[in-house]
């Protein structure tokens, strides 16, 4: 079933891709092939292979139960928040929080996660910023 859904999604993706390829504005100074042809070939391959996947699906993959799905979704949300807040609150705090969360969800104890989070953040800050001179996001406190 997963493969059938995946295949149908792929066919839709291919159609969408082909439509946006057709919508590319041609420049008046174009070569013989133009900017549309290759994307259209790709869309065709994408569509055919997706159709084959939908018609001849593989055995069902092992999907996690709903709890694990929530787990992954939550981790993704944390990472997105991390990306958004990084320039605002600065590298050290953002990284410590995100790493603590991930360590906690991977089964560390509370104290262990905080230690991992702070250790990762400070460790990266020292190695990458102080030693190697990479510029990291600065927060209001300057780090």
């Amino acid at each position: 079933m997963s493969d059938r859904i995946f295949g149908v999604f792929g066919v839709l993706l291919a159609i969408g891709y082909a439509m946006s390829a057709l919508a590319i504005e041609e420049s008046f100074l174009s070569d013989a092939v133009g900017p549309k042809a290759f994307p259209l070939i790709i869309a065709a391959i994408l569509g055919i292979s997706s159709a084959v996947i939908a018609i001849k699906p593989d055995p069902e993959p092992h999907w996690p139960d709903i709890g694990r799905f929530v787990e992954i979704a939550a981790a993704v949300v944390v990472m997105v928040l991390y990306a958004e807040f990084l320039p605002i609150i600065g590298f050290v705090f953002a990284t410590a929080l995100a790493a603590t969360y991930l360590a906690w969800r991977l089964g560390s104890t509370i104290i262990g996660s905080v230690a991992t989070g702070v250790g990762t953040s400070v460790g990266i800050y020292v190695i990458f910023h102080l030693v190697l001179g990479l510029s990291l996001a600065r927060g209001p406190l300057g780090f």
């Binding site: 590298f91 990284t95 995100a98 790493a99 991977l106 991992t116 460790g123 990458f128 990479l134 990291l136």
Partner: peptide, 24 residues
Amino acid sequence: PPRVLMPVVAMVSFVGIYGISGSS
């Protein structure tokens, strides 16, 4: 253990990509 390793991997990935472009 991966519960220590994986957060480090994730954070180093973020740092590296942010270091190249500096954009969220």
